[in-house]
Design a protein around this nucleic acid. Sequence first.
DNA 1: CGTAGCTTTGAAGATTTTCAACCTTAGTGG
DNA 2: CCACTAAGGTTGAAAATCTTCAAAGCTACG
Lengths: 254, 254
Amino acid sequence: MADKNVISLDKIKVACHDCSLAELCLPMGLRPEDVDRLDAIVKRNRPLQRGDNLFRAGETFRNLYVVKTGAVKTFTQSNDGDEQVVGFHLPGEVLGLDAIQDGSHGCSARALETTAICELPFERLEDLSSSIPSLQHQMFRLLSKEISQEAEMMALLGRSTAEERVASFLISLSERFKRRGFSATDFFLSMSRQEIGSYLGLALETVSRLFTRFQDEKILKVERKHVQILDRARLQAMVTHHHNCEPSQARPTT
Amino acid sequence: MADKNVISLDKIKVACHDCSLAELCLPMGLRPEDVDRLDAIVKRNRPLQRGDNLFRAGETFRNLYVVKTGAVKTFTQSNDGDEQVVGFHLPGEVLGLDAIQDGSHGCSARALETTAICELPFERLEDLSSSIPSLQHQMFRLLSKEISQEAEMMALLGRSTAEERVASFLISLSERFKRRGFSATDFFLSMSRQEIGSYLGLALETVSRLFTRFQDEKILKVERKHVQILDRARLQAMVTHHHNCEPSQARPTT
DNA sequence: CGTAGCTTTGAAGATTTTCAACCTTAGTGG
DNA sequence: CCACTAAGGTTGAAAATCTTCAAAGCTACG
């Protein structure tokens, strides 16, 4: 809607209009004055550098976070030190929804590259939701969407071969980039093979091999972090095989 | 809180007090008069028989459902016919949260045994939430909890061996039964090996073998659907190995 | 230019799946 | 009352997939 660029002085407000609140507001349109009220509670912090933590597991939950630019991973750590990636978060996506429940974060979040974040104090958001029914509705939808997406991921992990998982991962990234106005067929992975593997429940070598194989089969062109999707149809076919209950692309929702 | 038994005439109301709304109300206590307002919108339907569908993927979303007694599975169907189980729902647990998002159910729900269900018209629930801040808060918590649980499941599926998955599944069931006042160490599985396997991303034979092995190792006693946990500590140890970020049992929250 | 960190690749090893047979239980009907 | 059948469960062996271990290649960065 508001397509303005970020302006230095009025940065906070504008930043929110054009990005952070898109996820919350655009889907069903709050009234402009309500958007302003929402804007008023949003904070924008200095950008995170690669490796910086946004929050850590166990910390008290106070804010939801919206990725403006960059990318963030969420992960848990096993007691023997190695980490398990539970999500990647691209621009426009929200973090922290799992922490509302018990007031503390259940996973840590770390920037995969230089990343700008908006912060939404959850208590304020709750207050506002009480007085703006359509915001409450958006909040419910937002939470519900997260549940759907996770369920889809569970179905993927519960059923798929390594091939399906990697294909599905690429399609997911592709769609998410596309939605934010980036190329759906040509993008950079901000995460390592290791992190992809951890997320998909595969060894990093398996991920690497699949990338190589897809390239040999002319489905992808991969050059380190740079991925180009050459044959989306075949990628899709690998996944469609398990038909995720909702006809994903049949409805132009979202 | 209300520990009354179900009384025939006033069944609907009482039923809700002692069970269906526990999940929504008890965690942080609505005021009694608010609970009554909530009760007023709850419907209770005839019980479902084993195999009956509660809803099907693609149907319009109107209600959330709370399992009162019995058990329900949610699943998606691949185009080649076989199903993928995405969840099991025991008494006190809520179904349908994933459907708020786009107004239609993304998976089907079917009774695994004779099952009683409460129905909560979501629109009414939203209206009520607007006027009862603590109910809104409970709703957010409910949705957030679902997100946490799914994230935990994703972590499990993404990281575990068959052994860990089955161990984790049993512990999860055990805890859920316990919370509802059933035995944590002696219960009946209402789902088949096939369904467990589908849920955990394992072949049904693998599930069966693990049950047998656990029995050989004196961790379980399994006799068809009847499971007894003999050595919870060792079951727990198989899972703890991956430390689910939140110290699960350290805090008596819930 | 050299080192550190990813990534790729190969080969061996482990786990899990698949296929197939058999067993058990519960329900049915002779 | 017993045999029969169907559905679910168990078990074994072969086959497939994925992981692990190991080594080498590539890039980026200081």
